[in-house]
């Protein structure tokens, strides 16, 4: 069979619709996992052993169980206990929870990398605990962890393709439909693969630029 991409031309609007859904799901999941990751990261670095333990268990569980199993757990399990939400919401929630585990790890190591002297200086200045966390710890930790956060988010974009298994027609799901309509699976999935690679590659370049920009005042080598 010839490698012919022109047959895809009339399916591009449909694929773009899927891409739009992927974008929505990923944006919401990035926000969700960032919020969750910040909270859990703070718990993991807190002085309370109980919070610490709880957060560690959460991260341990969601990092060591495949995302597709988590997704099925939520997708099939939630209706069982009377919560009826659509596939999109389930997908975003599952992505956020799984992403939150990875994000919290990054944020935790960002917080642990802060020079204790900085925190001590803030403490002797008489700042409140919450102020220290918001104004001193978070800016430093977040700025230093832009790049690792970026790779977590790139992973999130790639993981979002799994949402197609719960009937959500995002980019991969709609490509599946196009492939079965045109009988040209090779061309469709090849284009899809290149599209995902280009997208995530661009995202990681942008993240790298952001990282360098935010850390431009740091010493050479620390960036």
């Amino acid at each position: 069979m010839k490698f012919d991409l022109s047959i895809l031309a009339k399916h591009i609007p449909f694929l773009l619709e899927g891409a739009w859904l992927t974008l929505q799901a990923c944006t919401l999941a990035v926000i969700g996992s960032l919020v969750l990751g910040l909270a859990v990261g703070a718990m993991r670095t807190s002085a309370s052993p109980l919070l610490n333990r709880l957060a560690a268990v959460y991260v341990d569980i969601f990092r060591n169980i495949p995302f597709i199993v988590q997704l099925f757990f939520f997708y099939f399990g939630l209706p069982e206990i009377g919560i009826y939400i659509d596939a999109f919401t389930t997908g975003v929630v599952a992505l956020s929870i799984a992403g939150g585990a990875f994000t919290s790890d990054v944020i935790r190591s960002g917080i642990l990398a802060i020079d204790p002297g900085v925190i001590e200086a803030a403490q002797v200045s008489g700042l409140k605990k919450s102020t220290i966390f918001r104004r001193i710890i978070l800016p430093i930790a977040l700025r230093a962890s832009i790049r690792p956060l970026g790779s977590v988010f790139v992973n999130l974009i790639l993981t979002s393709s799994i949402l197609s298994t719960i009937t959500l027609n995002e980019l991969t799901g709609s490509a599946k439909i196009v492939a079965s309509n045109t009988f040209r699976p090779f061309e469709v999935y090849f284009v899809l693969l290149v599209a995902y690679a280009a997208l995530t590659y661009t995202v990681s370049i942008l993240i790298g630029m952001l990282h360098r920009h935010l850390n431009r005042h740091q010493a050479e080598g620390a960036v």
């Binding site: 979002s160 991969t172 599946k176 699976p185 995530t200 990681s204």
Partner: peptide
């Protein structure tokens, strides 16, 4: 930089 699921579809379908 591409999802494993898409790679899998490319090889299988």
């Amino acid at each position: 930089n591409s999802p494993v699921l898409v790679q899998l579809f490319l090889v299988f379908f």
